[in-house]
Amino acid sequence: MLSFVKIMDQINKVILIIIGLLTGVMAAVIIAQVFSRFVLSTSLSWSEELARYLSIYAVFLGAAVALRHQGLISVEVIHEFIPQALSKWLKIIVNLICIVFSVVLIFVGMEMIDKVQIQNSPAMQIPMSIPYASIPIGALLMALNAVVVVIELFKGGNRNG
Rank of each mutant, 00 (worst) to 15 (best):
F107L: 13
G157T: 15
I126C: 08
V116T: 03
S102V: 10
Q84G: 09
L44D: 00
I73H: 06
V75I: 13
L141Q: 11
V147H: 00
L67P: 03
L54G: 06
V100K: 07
L153D: 03
T23Q: 03
F38H: 01
F38G: 08
N158S: 14
A85T: 13
L61P: 05
L61F: 10
S43K: 09
Y53M: 12
A66H: 03
V77P: 04
P131I: 03
M8V: 05
L72E: 08
I31P: 07
S41A: 12
V100D: 01
L44K: 07
P131R: 10
M112Q: 07
R159S: 15
V116A: 05
K13N: 07
I106G: 06
H69V: 07
S74W: 02
S87E: 07
M142Y: 00
K13L: 01
K88L: 03
S41Q: 14
K155P: 00
A32K: 09
I137E: 02
M26D: 08
E48W: 05
A66S: 11
T23G: 07
L2H: 14
V65E: 12
V34T: 10
N160C: 01
L72C: 00
F101N: 04
L50M: 14
A63N: 13
S87A: 11
I19G: 09
A85H: 15
G157I: 13
K115V: 10
A63W: 05
P131W: 12
A143Y: 00
Q10I: 11
V59H: 07
Y53T: 00
K115C: 04
I126F: 11
M124E: 06
S121A: 09
H79F: 12
G20E: 10
S134K: 12
I31V: 15
I7G: 10
D9W: 01
G157E: 15
S74P: 01
V39C: 05
